[in-house]
């Protein structure tokens, strides 16, 4: 299994994590360990096993369609670093 520095950087970018150059090797090494474990798990024969979607053997309860929350914008926007004209402000994003 190959995991070079550029791959570590790409994964970090996808996860929006900033990592310093000094840490790249160490992180790469740790990811590799995880991937080795994943490989080991991949080798297990799972065909006869029914996939598990949730650890609990239970069914989702449903909520009646009723409005229970009130407008609490003023309080909530106090938690935000920046809000203006009712909007939460973030560094400019363009897709």
């Amino acid at each position: 299994m190959i995991l070079d520095k550029s791959e570590v950087r790409k994964i970090a970018q996808l996860a929006r994590l900033h990592i310093s150059d000094a840490d790249v090797d160490e992180i790469g090494h740790r990811i590799k360990e995880i991937l080795t474990l994943v490989d080991q798990m991949q080798s297990v024969e799972t065909k006869p096993v029914e996939p598990l979607y949730h650890p609990f053997d239970a069914v989702q309860k449903l909520r009646p369609d009723v409005v229970t929350e009130r407008n609490n914008r003023e309080e909530l926007q106090k938690l935000a670093p920046k809000a203006e004209m009712g909007l939460y402000l973030v560094p400019k994003v363009l897709d």
Partner: peptide, 12 residues
């Protein structure tokens, strides 16, 4: 909303 603010985006 990208138009209203400079260097910032507004989120609704």
């Amino acid at each position: 909303l990208h138009e209203e603010f400079t260097d910032q985006s507004g989120i609704d």
